[in-house]
Computed example of a mutant assay.
Amino acid sequence: MISLLRQKSFRDTASQVGFIGVLILLVVTFALTAKTNLDAQGMTSGFGFLERATGWGVSFSLIPFDTNDTYARVILVGLLNSLFLGAISLTLATVIGIGIGIMRVSGNKMAELIGTVYVEIFRNLPLLLQAFFWYAVLTTLPRPRDALEFGGVAFLNGRGAYLPGLNVTGFSVFLAAIALAVTVGLWLWLRSARRFARMAPHIKKAWSRGLWLGWAALAVALLWAGRIPETPLLSIPTLKGLNFRGGIRVSPELLTCIIAISVYGGAYIGEIVRAGFNAVGKGQSEAGHALGLSTWQTFTRIRLPLAIRAVMPMLINQYVWLFKSTTIGIAVGFVDFFMVISTSINQSGQTLELIAILMGGFLVINYSMAWVLNRVNDAIKLKGTQLRT
């Protein structure tokens, strides 16, 4: 025994086994303590409560829901709402961030000043504070009769934004948006991945057209399948009485979350994009000009692709962090995943089970998003130093 203790490999293995054993003991102890406390309070554990009716409704849902539906369905409602909010907010934040990043490296003094002021303001204010600010602004807008009008088809007032829309179910729109995101990812992969570098240009163009035509056909099929019976396909909001009828109503709560996350995330993404452009050597642009490329061609074919490759790992982290920020919806009353779980805990008392569902949901969503984006990063990143002798 003494000889074994003198062996470093035995001591290392024993310490690791002991550490794992202590962790298992702690987990078992916590589980038994929690079960004892729940039994003392007359509370049952397990996930059987998911089949019980909630008895309460939600203000926003992409799928049909009423008070007689189960806890499992209301959790699905919250999850889909968070995914919907995240998809819109991350897309808008990316567009804003790219625009701000370009402004900050444009060489135009006024554009650089505007970009710098934007970043310094919105990056340094807490996201929750910005959500409260935008909610206060949106809820103090004029009444429907005095709503702000945009082209006679879109309106903005204290009850939300009213936009032209299709008379289809929200779930069909959600599926079409997911299909669009997948199509964009495949298109970027086709254009940027090394394995397609030797593909003939006309074949690559044909594949690109096929992708977009396939998405268009799938989107039309999804929207047609989700069409609400006995209604016109296109609905334009019109003022009738004291409120608008028809079209799509975007509630102040949802609009607040979209604006706050997009503006806040755009400031961070703008700095990431600026760092990517600065990482591209001036010699690359000079070589493009020497080959006769215009400024726009140099930007789109040299600087932008190299900048995206340089910042993709940082963008992945930022996207994961921004999606977690969708939980601010509870502060303004938006029915997101976190709010549904919190309400379910208050109504059912199944705290441990619901927190486990919340943690598992965010873990699966963020890991899936990071995995997909990491595969994209592996496909487009440059190997080695790219030096040639």
Rank of each mutant, 00 (worst) to 15 (best):
V280Q: 03
A31Q: 13
F155I: 09
G55T: 14
A176V: 12
L128E: 08
E271M: 06
L304E: 00
C257I: 11
W187Y: 13
A275F: 02
I380Y: 04
M110R: 03
L90F: 01
W371I: 02
A40G: 11
R249M: 10
I259C: 06
V311P: 03
V311T: 00
A307C: 02
V58Y: 09
L50R: 04
G247E: 10
L25S: 07
N278F: 03
L180V: 10
V22F: 14
A161C: 11
R145K: 15
L190N: 11
R274M: 10
M314D: 04
A216D: 08
W207D: 02
L373K: 01
L222G: 05
S344P: 09
F60S: 05
Y162N: 13
T70E: 12
D39E: 15
S325I: 02
M339D: 12
S9Q: 15
F334N: 06
S342Q: 13
T295Y: 09
K109S: 11
A221I: 13
Q350F: 09
T54I: 13
N68I: 03
A219W: 06
I355C: 00
T300Y: 03
L382W: 01
I330F: 12
V250Q: 05
V77M: 05
A179R: 12
M1Y: 07
Q284A: 00
G214W: 10
S235V: 11
L163Q: 11
S45R: 14
D69I: 06
L352Y: 07
R303H: 06
G276S: 00
M199T: 15
A307I: 01
L188S: 00
G86H: 07
G247H: 10
V263L: 10
F65Y: 15
L304S: 00
K204G: 14
F337Q: 05
V117D: 03
K35T: 14
L255Y: 07
I308T: 08
G361Y: 04
L373C: 02
M199F: 12
D69L: 05
G241T: 12
F337R: 04
G99F: 08
P305E: 00
I355Y: 08
G152K: 15
I365H: 01
S262M: 10
W371R: 06
A307F: 01
F244M: 03
L315F: 14
L50V: 05
G246V: 09
N81S: 13
L291G: 00
A193P: 06
R159Y: 11
L373W: 04
A331T: 09
A275S: 15
G283I: 00
E230Q: 14
N278A: 05
